[in-house]
Amino acid sequence: MASSPDTPSAPGSSGTTGATAPRPAGGPVLQDSVTAAISQAFFEELAATGYAKLSLEAVARRAGAGKAAIYRRWPAKQEMALALISDVVARTPEPLDSGAVREDLLAFLAETAEVLRHPLASKIIPDLLAEARRTPELGEALLGAVREPRRSRAGRILDRAVERGELPADLDHGIALDLLAGPLYWHIAVVNGTAEPGYLERLADMLLAALRG
């Protein structure tokens, strides 16, 4: 007998992510619209309550779906969180390759600032960083799902600049990657700065000067 598809109890909100949960062999048909509604509800609930207090029941209610619809896709909260967050990271555009390191840095900073200013991300990111310190297992998983892919993308900007001779061949990539992310996060997430275009231009110039030594 064929398995029945998901049937949400109410129309879900339009999802902002394209997450697709894996379907076990012989398992139920997973409707993309339900997955999108759950994904949107998860991020809204995460921003509203934080990871520690987030419940699958609350996500299901917000999505207008049954709790069983979540368990058809992910076995537990951490797996759902990592899958949906990883999907967002995976869909981040590749860094600009303009042929000039300053333009690439400026585009990277603008994209990062847009993420940090997003009304959901601005609440979610600090909470996840704090939770990662309290829950080592989650922290390790987030390193692989979020930090490493983003650092790898940023690293490609540096690699290309070194190949073109715009940055020194002995560049310390670890410190350079910390330098790319740290000042902007501090400015937006900690001191609540605006990071207007003029600020990003000045920051790009100072970063470039520091990277060149």
Rank of each mutant, 00 (worst) to 15 (best):
A58K: 12
T112K: 01
P75K: 07
E94A: 15
E111H: 12
I175D: 07
I85W: 02
E140L: 15
E111T: 09
R133V: 09
A189P: 00
T92G: 00
V34K: 02
P22H: 07
E140D: 10
T7L: 15
A110Q: 13
R117N: 11
G193I: 09
L84Q: 07
E163W: 07
D97Y: 00
A154V: 12
L171G: 02
R102T: 07
R150P: 00
P24T: 11
L46Y: 09
T135M: 11
A176P: 02
E57P: 00
A181I: 11
A83T: 07
A169Q: 13
K123D: 07
L179T: 13
L109S: 04
A195D: 12
E196S: 13
G15I: 07
I125A: 14
R150Y: 04
A110V: 06
V59L: 02
V89R: 08
D87Q: 10
E103S: 14
G144S: 00
S122H: 08
A60N: 02
R62N: 11
R150S: 09
R73K: 14
R134E: 14
P197W: 00
M80D: 08
A161R: 06
P95A: 15
G12S: 10
E148G: 06
D205W: 04
P8K: 10
S4Q: 12
E45F: 02
S4D: 06
A169W: 01
A63P: 05
P149L: 09
L105C: 01
R202T: 07
A65M: 10
A145Y: 03
P136K: 07
A83H: 13
L211G: 07
R91K: 13
A83D: 12
L203I: 05
H118N: 12
P136E: 10
A76V: 01
R147F: 12
E45L: 11
A113C: 01
S14E: 15
V101R: 08
T7R: 15
S98E: 03
T194M: 00
K53M: 06
A132S: 14
V34S: 08
G193K: 08
D170H: 12
L105R: 03
P197S: 02
G66D: 15
P197A: 01
Y185K: 04
P24D: 10
V88N: 08
P24F: 06
A58L: 06
H118A: 09
L203K: 03
A48Y: 04
A107N: 01
L120H: 02
G182C: 05
E131Y: 04
D205Y: 05
L158G: 09
Q78I: 04
G139S: 02
D32G: 15
P126I: 11
R151Q: 14
V89M: 09
W186N: 00
I157S: 04
A169S: 11
L180T: 02
E137N: 00
E148I: 15
G139Q: 03
S152R: 14
E196H: 11
